[in-house]
Design a protein around this nucleic acid. Structure first.
Lengths: 335, 335
DNA sequence: AATGTTTCATGAAACGTTTCGCAACAAACG
DNA sequence: CGTTTGTTGCGAAACGTTTCATGAAACATT
């Protein structure tokens, strides 16, 4: 009987199997080892219920098999989907996910970055709002929706095509004059392309077009002001509305309701993201769906890529349209 | 100029400050050190931009300042809330969160447990569905909603009171005959108390009571069967419905809708969890709200508790009722 | 049979901390 | 002034891996 107190180490396994320390290491890491040695070592590992100590491993090899994921929160369905899909993609490769919720707070974002810095994660995947985030230059770093500069790949939906698609849908559904709604500070970089795509789509389909950018503040007030501006003789002066996020669409529907207007009768609304209630539930509104699974997979692939030089600066993934009750789709399209 | 290649170590700081290794360690860990020494060391740390290597720390001290959190997913709003609040509570104490989404899969749950075992997390917080999970006995382990046995604290809402509250609300809102709906395998242990609380509440208020437990399978079919059973002469034979989760309430509303029934006109529904759309959005249905913030805080407190012997076997936290549009509350109660 | 070549297990050194026995020195005391 | 007590910085050892120089054994070549 030897020490039974703490967990067995490689040394214990080596002694048990009657081989050298290095041999055990090789077996554990799947490196070539003589067949009879391998068998003896594996038996010893089994017998002692040996588990490698990943902290010793991390110290020596500088690889930790963990990735930090920065997201504003988990309760916005889009972020929730991302968190879930990222966890899936990472788990598939036996990587762990350190989830950091930053609450849209640039300071918090930087603090998490600093925190994982001493934690020696193997990489960072971030959907952040601090344009000046300082990340160690040699740390593999991939962003979602934010282009941070050369050498830092950005993965995003095809926001431009999504905007275009929204315009086309509204046109197909019979709209003649449409509006675009977004909150000033809410979206930067890649998602901005939703606007130009939408504008372009309106142009192509000859839709009358108006835009409203809302500044920060109480959204309810801003929405009310916006709607009042466009409300004459008991009706809105537009018949289609594209909101830059499902969240926005959801919020403004409350206001429309309180004004006695009805969706999609009085106005058809398309959002962006593909937010659903319980994962498998219905969409919150008719929407341009972001492929969270593909986004997650791509992020993981890029952040784990060995040759940093081969990483593309920007990856755009295809979006799709989904009916969610806030448009008057032809019946066949209704699930 | 010394080696500029890799990150500075304590040794580098010690050399820079002209002190011994152990002194730097003490400063870093806030242990008592002579004032002039402290100043010199702090200056050196600042100058070299030194960061402790948490893997070396973890190897030596067996403390990693990270907690594994096991949840089925992040897209159910209740789980999403938990993930967010847990992250908050952990961050407050400078702990990191390893998020593991298990997808209700007992095998996956055990695999994650095994994985974090070699990762030497400082503790595990789990909302799991495997009744036979094997966790190292000396690993601090706290569950949510599942009582796993003595020595493993379970944190939950006051499910009994919640069930009771649901019955009282329905009675207050004028219901005379009520139904209780749950899916067979969906909830075990603590949440089961929602049923007995509800039954008791019905008894106290003299409500006619019927219950339906749905087995696994296509929920839509089961719901339809259930509703048809209680559908006579164009109307349901109950006027109040308590669903064991908001998800369930949400699903059955679809079916009710497809049968041409209207909520809350034809039947009033109360769910459980407090699911909201975008975190700050409205509730999905009238519901018994679980205090996810308090649950998270309690879990973290318990899992980090030094003296394991002092940990209570079960902690119940108070729930509250929230209006969500699926009940006919008196106007004053409407937000 | 002698030499050159390849293969592969060995075990020491190193990774960056924490910890602890020790020495150095100051203060207090007789 | 010599001794004791108390304080505090010092630096070696240890944590459990990975890696690499070493040399023994096995095989191939002439």
């Amino acid at each position: 009987m030897r020490k039974m107190s703490s967990a067995p180490t490689m040394k214990d396994v080596a002694r048990e199997a009657g081989v050298a320390l290095g041999t055990v290491s090789k077996v554990v890491n799947g490196l070539p080892v003589g067949e009879n040695y391998r068998i003896r070592v594996e038996a010893a590992i089994e017998k002692l219920d040996y588990q490698v100590n990943s902290y010793a491993q991390g110290l020596k090899s500088n690889r930790t098999y963990s990735i930090a994921v920065l997201l504003p929160n988990t309760f916005n369905p889009f972020f929730a989907d991302l968190a879930y899909q990222l966890n899936l993609s990472l788990q598939k490769r036996r990587y762990k996910m350190l989830l950091c919720c930053t609450g849209f707070n640039p300071t918090e974002e930087q603090e998490y970055i600093n925190m994982v810095r001493q934690n020696k994660v193997d990489g960072i995947i971030g959907l952040t709002y601090n344009p000046n985030l300082i990340v160690e230059p040699d740390m593999p770093y991939v962003t979602i929706d934010r282009y941070m500069g050369p050498g830092i790949p950005c993965v995003a939906s095809d926001n431009y095509a999504g905007g275009q698609m929204a315009a086309e849908k509204l046109a197909d559904l019979g709209c003649r004059k449409v509006a675009f709604l977004r909150i000033g500070s809410s979206l930067t970089n890649e998602p901005n392309k939703r606007r130009s795509g939408f504008e372009n789509g309106c142009l192509a389909r000859q839709l009358d077009y108006t835009m409203k950018i809302l500044d920060d503040g109480d959204p309810f007030d801003y929405f009310t002001d916006f709607l009042n501006e466009h409300f004459h003789n008991g009706r809105l002066d537009f018949d289609g509305l594209f909101c830059v996020t499902d969240n926005l669409a959801f919020q403004i529907m409350k206001v429309l309701e309180s004004m006695g207007l009805s969706v999609p009768k009085d106005v058809q609304i398309i959002g962006f993201d593909g937010a659903r209630m319980f994962g498998d539930g219905r969409y919150v509104c008719s929407t341009i769906v972001q492929p969270t699974d593909a986004i997650a997979e791509m992020c993981v692939e890029l952040v784990l890529m060995d040759n940093a030089a081969l990483r593309p600066p920007l990856v755009c993934l295809p979006v799709s349209y989904a009916y969610g009750g806030t448009t008057r789709d032809i019946p066949a399209a209704v699930p």
